[in-house]
Amino acid sequence: MAKLAALACAAAVAATTALPAFGAEDYPSRAVQLVIPYDVGGGVDAVARILAAHMNTAFGQPFVVDARPGGATHIGTNHVARAKPDGYTLLLTGVSTMSLQPLIFAGITYDAIESFEPIGMVSRIPMFVSVADTAPYRDLPGLIDGAKGKPGGLSYASNGNGSLSHLSTEVLAARAGIDLTHVPYKGFAPAIPDLVSGRVDMLVSDLAAVSAPLQGGSVRLLAVTSVERSPFQPDVPTVAESGYPEYQAENWLALYAPAGTPAPVVERLGDELRQFLKSDPAREAFARLGHVPDPTDGAAVTRRVVQEQKTYAPALEAAGLGAR
């Protein structure tokens, strides 16, 4: 009996070692769903299609972009959080979904940290502080001085309450010790005419939102909110350079899998993602969208979310937008 048990044990070990580790060799063996919690045709959709096209070629299986908008990105995000953790359902999303929404909506059914396995960062989108070209402010210190001279007298536009534009401006105002009046709009498009005309004094947005008036000479960029100067506007100083060294705010996208996805699958996807993001084709494709590729790993994604939630929570509370 002991000899039979030993033989059975040896056979089991041999069978186990003969099988490839899940995900190391046999993944993917069928189509992969790449979910975006946004509408088709937007910036996230464009990035998703760039990634999907590369992954199709790299893995020899279809990566299908699946747009599931609605519920302030909750619908698509929840779909992935509840999906089978086998690597065949992925999520492309960013700062609003992971760093802001959990602070605003108490009823969210996903956890930004616990419900997902971050595969890696994908891109960063610089934000710019802009004013009308007719405004008297030539740089950010000048704008701050103007605001200090008339507390609450300067206004800023955003693309909505609780948006990154809104909160990043509130954080800047807090760091600078100024009081600004918030004017929320339903998107950047309706805010631009009021910025150009001077009805509102400033705006923090991505470059795409102000590209037309910037090219037309009716808008001036005072600072970029990222840690480093933007490759798209290298002459524009950072907010940190302008006197606020601890300040940073930028939009970003990252690739996620559901929590519990096998490590070999996450590693294989992450390795391929980072290799692609370091390539010239990726840099060129992303530059056309105003994005900077970011080939950092999943741990960097988690650190970013944790830090951003700490940064934006006080601003949300001050604005009366804490979790409800």
Rank of each mutant, 00 (worst) to 15 (best):
F232A: 12
P258F: 13
R274F: 01
S279V: 08
R268W: 07
S279D: 04
D271Q: 12
E228L: 06
A257D: 06
E246I: 00
D280E: 15
A254S: 06
L273T: 11
D297M: 01
A240K: 08
R283G: 09
A282C: 04
P293R: 01
F276Q: 03
P281I: 01
L277Y: 08
P231C: 10
V236R: 01
R283N: 07
S226W: 10
G298F: 04
L277C: 08
A287T: 05
P234Y: 15
E246F: 03
G290N: 09
V292C: 02
T238A: 00
P295R: 03
S242D: 14
P293L: 02
L273N: 14
R229N: 08
G243R: 00
E228W: 00
F286S: 05
A263W: 07
T225D: 02
A257S: 07
K278V: 03
G270H: 08
E272Y: 03
A240R: 13
V292M: 05
P245E: 15
A282G: 01
P262C: 07
Y244D: 15
N251C: 10
S226Q: 11
S226A: 15
S230P: 09
R288N: 03
A254F: 00
D271L: 06
S242K: 12
R274A: 04
P293I: 03
E250S: 11
D271V: 06
K278R: 15
L269W: 12
D297R: 00
G260E: 01
A257L: 09
D280C: 05
T296R: 08
A259E: 13
G260C: 00
R288Y: 07
V266Y: 03
P262V: 12
E241R: 04
V227K: 12
A249E: 14
D280W: 08
A249H: 14
V266C: 07
V239Q: 06
R288A: 10
R283K: 13
P293K: 02
P231D: 14
V266S: 03
A287P: 03
N251R: 02
R229D: 08
P262Q: 11
P245S: 15
G270T: 06
V227Q: 12
L277V: 08
Y256L: 13
A254G: 04
A259T: 09
G270W: 07
L269D: 07
P258Q: 13
L255M: 14
L269N: 10
P295Y: 05
G270P: 15
G243Y: 00
A285M: 02
R288F: 06
H291M: 11
V239E: 05
G243D: 05
L253R: 01
Q275M: 06
D297V: 02
Y244F: 12
F286M: 13
Q248P: 00
L255E: 15
P234F: 15
E284Y: 03
A257M: 09
A254M: 02
N251L: 14
G298V: 06
D235P: 00
L289E: 14
A282M: 03
A259F: 11
S226L: 04
V292F: 02
P293M: 04
V239R: 02
G290V: 14
T261W: 15
G298L: 07
P262H: 11
A263P: 04
E272M: 02
